[in-house]
């Protein structure tokens, strides 16, 4: 559909949240026990953090939970009873989600509807409406300005302008949301796209050359580059980069329980770990730097080769939360031939 533009007064956001709770399972940013920002289910608008700051964990768990039951089984005498996962009852509204989190769903949809239709994921995805809040300033390590991912699958985006939110509606789901609460929205008469462009220039989120897509040709020649070992061997192999990532989607299937009763579940898994794929076969990457290289090349070469978009929205969490501060953007630029100096200057074989 052609985009539509509305105005939402800043003092109407609370009312929108409260009324949406009657129709949707509303997920919004709130604070957890340690004061971290998280996507959760705050009960009132007072507990909502309607801010552009990124929570440590992305929003992907609402389509791909970290732990998900696929089937439960129970044996009674000779009979085995098995039940699939319970269907979730209500439509989810992701309220105030960051654009980098919201746009990630379109990117990973490709893999979940590729050769096998992943019903649990696709079901939750189809039921989710995205109400994104645009960032007024870039965050610590993010680089969305360097990746040209599509945002037109994000149902609505609210741009915080002077005195009001300019709401851009991009999909039918977004239009349904606005129609439901139409009395809260006013028509936008001005040149909305010009206002959005100005806003993004000021926020620092307008796209800048060279985009990381252009590193691909260089990366395709860099698999055997001698510097991987020196630059990626500080990786400790934890899963923080992948677990906080809005686009990393690898999972493991596990059984819990006994022969009498139990469940089969899937949990997140990650290619940077020592035991990744060790259960069905073996971990083919025998050194840590090779595991890190796999993650980078999967995002910036293999995935776009197969599906088109980069497997990255530039949120920067994998840099911010990396215990050893490995910088994926810098490494893509270096191995992709966009810059000559490696991060930290620790160049091998100068």
């Amino acid at each position: 559909m052609a985009a539509e533009y509305y105005r939402l007064n800043k003092d109407k956001v609370g009312e929108l949240f409260e009324r949406a709770r009657a129709d949707y399972d509303v997920v919004a940013k709130t604070r957890d026990a340690n004061g971290n920002l998280v996507y959760g289910r705050p009960a009132t608008f007072d507990d909502v953090a309607f801010v552009d700051e990124q929570p440590p964990m992305s929003a992907k768990a609402f389509a791909l939970p970290q732990t998900e039951t696929l089937v439960r089984y129970e044996r009674e005498d000779e009979k085995i009873r098995a039940e699939g996962p319970e269907a979730e009852a209500r439509d989810v509204l992701l309220f105030g989600v960051n654009i980098c989190d919201a746009a990630a769903f379109d990117i990973i949809d490709h893999v979940f509807k590729w050769d096998y239709l992943d019903d649990p994921y696709l079901g939750r995805r189809a039921d989710a409406t995205l109400f994104a809040l645009a960032c007024a300033a870039v965050q610590q390590d993010c680089f969305c300005d360097r990746i040209s991912y599509a945002e037109d699958g994000v149902d609505t985006v609210a741009y915080p302008l002077e005195g009001y939110y300019l709401v851009k509606v991009q999909t039918e789901k977004g239009r349904k949301l606005v129609e439901r609460y139409h009395d809260l929205f006013d028509a936008e008469d001005g040149d909305a796209e010009a206002a959005i462009n100005t806003f993004r220039e000021k926020a620092g989120t307008a796209k800048k050359e060279p985009l990381l897509e252009s590193a691909r040709a260089g990366l395709e020649k860099a698999f055997e580059h001698a510097d991987w070992e020196i630059l990626a061997s500080t990786c400790i192999g934890c899963g923080i980069c992948t677990y906080t990532c809005p686009t990393c989607h690898c999972f493991d299937i596990q059984d819990e329980g006994s022969a009498i009763a139990g469940r089969r579940l899937r949990t997140w898994d990650h290619c940077t770990g020592r035991t990744f794929t060790a259960m069905p076969a073996h971990q083919p990457r025998d050194r840590q730097y090779k595991r890190y290289r796999q993650r980078l090349l999967h995002k910036f070469w293999y995935y776009p080769e197969r599906f088109g978009p980069l497997l990255c929205t530039g949120c920067g969490r994998c840099i911010t939360y990396c215990p050893v501060k490995i910088n994926i953007k810098e490494l893509v630029e270096y191995f992709g031939g966009l810059k000559d100096t490696p991060p930290g200057g620790a160049r091998h074989g100068k």
């Binding site: 390590d141 020196i230 061997s233 500080t234 840099i319 050893v324 501060k325 490995i326 910088n327 810098e330 991060p343 930290g344 200057g345 620790a346 160049r347 091998h348 074989g349 100068k350």
Partner: peptide, 18 residues
């Protein structure tokens, strides 16, 4: 430790490293 992009982080060097 090396320093770059606003962070200080561990670095492993060999004799050929800068």
């Amino acid at each position: 430790y090396a320093e770059d992009y606003g962070h200080t982080f561990p670095a492993i060097l060999t004799k050929d490293s800068d």
